[in-house]
Amino acid sequence: MQENCDILLSELNDQIRNAIKSGTHTTDYPQAVQFVLLADLFNYHVVQGGFAQLIYNLQGAYLAEIEAMLLAADATTAHLYYVQSIEKCLEEDAHYQQFLESPYTDEHTLKNELHVISIAYFKTGKSFIAEICPFISSSAAAVNGWLANDIN
């Protein structure tokens, strides 16, 4: 089941991106479509490099939107650790900005602290995909509806 949700999320993301690239759709999409894109983004970065990679690559963008997606998807475990990561970044803004401005490969205390949060998240054994599987399945209809209404 989890593998099917992972595949479905990837397929929906590809379909949305292809529609935007082809010019048949704009980036003015409904929230459900945005949440699918954000879920795929979240999943990719957290699996590849944890919350440090996600936060670094976002560079401050879409932080509130990702939280809204996690809440809408009822991803309670992912949300808990995401909030811990954001709170860690907010503890000292100068430290956070320094992390974002330095090369990711550089040693940084905040990056290490975010890795600790990521390890704790992974130790829960609750994968993000498993948590959001019902949400992704129900989002497919909204994505397909948006795809059926092109701008041409």
Rank of each mutant, 00 (worst) to 15 (best):
C5M: 03
I7N: 05
L8R: 11
L12V: 10
N13I: 04
D14P: 00
A19Y: 12
I20V: 11
S22G: 15
G23R: 01
H25F: 05
T27D: 05
D28T: 09
Q31H: 03
A32E: 15
V33M: 13
L38P: 03
A39L: 08
N43C: 06
N43V: 03
H45Y: 12
V47Q: 10
Q53I: 09
I55E: 00
N57V: 01
L58Q: 08
L58R: 07
Q59C: 06
Q59K: 13
G60H: 09
A64R: 06
I66A: 01
M69S: 05
L71Y: 14
L71Q: 14
A72P: 08
A73Y: 09
A73L: 06
T76A: 10
T77A: 07
A78W: 01
L80T: 13
E91T: 13
E92P: 10
F99L: 12
E101L: 11
P103L: 11
D106Q: 09
E107N: 06
H115S: 14
I117Q: 06
S118K: 03
A120E: 15
A120I: 10
T124S: 14
S127K: 00
F128S: 01
F128T: 01
E131C: 03
I132M: 05
C133K: 04
I136F: 08
S138Q: 12
A141E: 15
V143E: 08
G145F: 01
